[in-house]
């Protein structure tokens, strides 16, 4: 990441460096591209949420901007009919497995799902899909925060923080397919796991899956290092 490159996002000329991922360049320059799973500092982007599609000039299919390496004179559009179709579909799919009810959600002020809906004019309700069954489990065993899996979007930020930043490794993914969840060893409660309640996962969580209990937000909460611009 040394050679400077000039690129165009929605026609706007932007200075970047070759090899940077387009998503981060766009966000740095105030151009919003929906995203949930992107983690700064993670060497290989996960590419799992499928929301950050952009249209590259000269390329018929949309590509995910978190995996798109910048090259000189790259030109992309953040919107196109195809991009919008995929983003809308991915968003509705995520909502179909997410307990809505924003009014009661502790994260309603910082929810990134709401942000995506607002930015892209998407509805916060299901139009063509049925809500998938989810037996909601709420783990409130930790002293300072609550883990509500029914609102988890599996972005993996909490898992990354827990092991790569704090080096605790209490949280991880388990199972596969529709059963994939963020969980602890043998699904024990957070209080029984190795969690040290640093609270960084709560700050990293883009949805209402992890939230602080009333009045328990640590005063000196660290800056969430996975998202900083």
């Amino acid at each position: 990441m040394s050679k400077p490159a000039t690129i165009f996002i929605d026609g706007r000329k932007i200075d970047a460096f070759e090899g940077e991922k387009l998503l981060w360049v766009a966000l740095r320059n105030g151009i919003y591209i929906p995203n949930l799973c992107a983690i700064r500092g993670k060497e290989h982007p996960s590419g799992s949420c499928r929301l950050c599609y952009v249209q590259v000039e000269g390329c018929s299919e949309p590509v995910t901007s978190c995996t798109l390496s910048v090259t000189d004179s790259l030109s992309v559009q953040t919107r196109s009919p195809q991009v919008d179709r995929l983003v809308k579909s991915a968003f509705e799919l995520l909502l179909s497995h997410h307990r809505l009810g924003c009014r009661d959600c502790a994260k309603r002020k910082s929810c990134e799902l709401l942000k995506i809906a607002k930015e892209r004019g998407l509805k916060m309700k299901l139009t063509r899909l049925a809500l998938l069954d989810q037996e909601a489990e709420v783990d409130d065993s930790a002293e300072t925060f609550v883990f509500d899996r029914s609102r988890c979007v599996l972005c993996g930020r909490c898992v990354w923080i827990c092991r790569e930043v704090i080096k605790v490794g209490a949280l991880g993914f388990s199972r596969r397919g529709i059963k994939r969840v963020v969980t602890t060893f043998q699904d024990v409660s957070l209080a029984q796991s190795g969690c040290i309640e640093c609270g960084l996962c709560v700050e990293a969580c883009p949805s209402g899956a992890l939230y602080f209990k009333e009045g328990k937000k640590p005063a000196a909460a660290g800056q969430c290092s996975c998202r900083g611009g």
């Binding site: 092991r163 605790v168 490794g169 209490a170 949280l171 991880g172 993914f173 388990s174 199972r175 596969r176 969980t183 602890t184 060893f185 043998q186 796991s193 190795g194």
Partner: peptide
Amino acid sequence: AMEQIAAALKIPAVDVYGLATF
């Protein structure tokens, strides 16, 4: 067994559990 293996390989036990459920 999973905990013992995790400790020996110096990886979080939840990773062994994740693998075993995957």
